[in-house]
């Protein structure tokens, strides 16, 4: 006769559970049941031996013994389920090779330029800017003259132009493919009055030989904010916020003086190179900085041209090249990849 003790109960628990692990048939499981919780099972015998103990020990060991019994019964039913399921699936052989590929669902994707335009515009939309679009075939007047770039101005050399053959040309209304999105500045201001806060994405064209970093056909995003009390400080803050949203919070931003005839003061914004963190590498031509956009305070002559009083209204404008930013973000080395429409490119980017 085995004496009922906590040690004995524990010994039965450990041994029985270990035994249960290795059982693989329902018959084996029944034998396990009989030998532990059956009428003559070892646990049953220990519980039966409680009667000979003093009340204190009886309570303590009874509780322990019954916990083990409940555990055994629970494990028993779980194991039974597992064995029955295994038996069921073993009876029919319809298992599949799960390593085979699934149905080849065709993948589609938006063009990288489209997605970049959405991302970049989205950053400005969240700052209260609204998206607008405009014509790609433009009058010289909007593309140049309204932007303080008169005919025969040397600054015109900054924008090699594709001209459109147009019957009216001799009457002095030359038509062209816009060289930048900036003509929308005058168009928007002519049609609306302040406050203005817009971004204008769109295709632009230059008479230019293409190479790895130059395309004659590209997408720009123009920005314009005009109202009473808009300052150069606001320009810096807005574009700084844009850069953080687009390139990451840890990026540093640099503003330096630059020249565009339709702004004064003029600005060039760079971010520290995200390839080398500003240390200097091939991506940033060893300068540590990457030029991102041109900007400035809207030139008073541009405001006057659309009938705004520049002594009352001020504003800033900016323009950025979408492909350039996409190239930097994706590590694309050749801008010509964008519009040669090779599916192998479109799938990746």
């Amino acid at each position: 006769m085995v004496v009922t003790s906590l040690d004995n109960i524990e010994a039965v628990r450990v041994a029985a559970l270990a035994e249960l692990e290795s059982i693989e048939t329902l018959e084996g499981l029944e034998r396990w049941r009989v030998s532990h919780v059956g009428r003559n099972g070892d646990l049953t015998k220990l519980l039966r031996g409680l009667g000979s103990l003093d009340p204190e020990s009886r309570r303590e060991m009874g509780a322990a013994g019954n916990r083990v019994k409940a555990l055994f019964e629970e494990r028993l039913s779980v194991k039974e389920e597992v064995l029955k399921r295994a038996l069921l699936y073993a009876s029919v052989d319809d298992s599949i090779d799960v390593t085979l590929p699934g149905w080849p669902i065709p993948g589609g994707r938006l063009h990288p330029t489209t997605r970049m335009v959405r991302d970049l515009c989205g950053a400005f939309v969240s700052m209260g800017f609204q998206i607008m679009e405009g014509p790609e075939v433009e009058w010289d007047r909007y593309n140049f003259e309204a932007l303080n770039i008169p005919r025969d101005h040397p600054a015109r050399d900054m924008w090699n132009t594709l001209w459109v053959n147009y019957a009216d040309e001799r009457e002095g209304r030359p038509m062209l493919l816009r060289t930048h999105t900036s003509p929308m500045q005058a168009r928007i201001m002519e049609k609306t009055s302040p406050p203005i806060r817009v971004v204008v994405p769109g295709k632009c064209y230059r008479y230019e030989a293409t190479d790895a970093t130059h395309e004659w056909h590209f997408v720009q995003i123009e920005g314009l904010a005009v109202d009473r009390g808009i300052t150069f400080s606001d320009l810096k803050g807005t574009l700084y916020e844009f850069a953080r949203r687009t390139f990451g919070e840890e990026r540093r931003v640099r503003f330096r003086c630059d020249y565009f005839p339709f702004v004064e003061p003029g600005v060039d914004m760079s971010v520290d190179c995200f390839a080398c963190d500003g240390g200097g590498c091939r991506v940033c031509s060893n300068t540590g900085w990457i030029e991102i956009l041109g900007a400035g305070m809207v030139h008073p002559r541009v405001l006057e041209g659309v009938g705004y009083d520049p002594s009352i209204y001020t504003g800033f404008a900016f323009g950025l090249g979408v492909e350039r930013i996409a190239m930097l973000k994706h590590g694309i080395e050749d801008i010509r990849s964008f519009y040669s429409n090779d599916v192998r490119f479109l799938q990746q980017t």
Binding site: M127, G128, P195, R197, A225, D227, R228, F232, D234, K236
Partner: peptide, 12 residues
Amino acid sequence: AVPTTTLSTPIP
């Protein structure tokens, strides 16, 4: 040396 501020004018 120019401060950096956010636009405070009304959103159109």
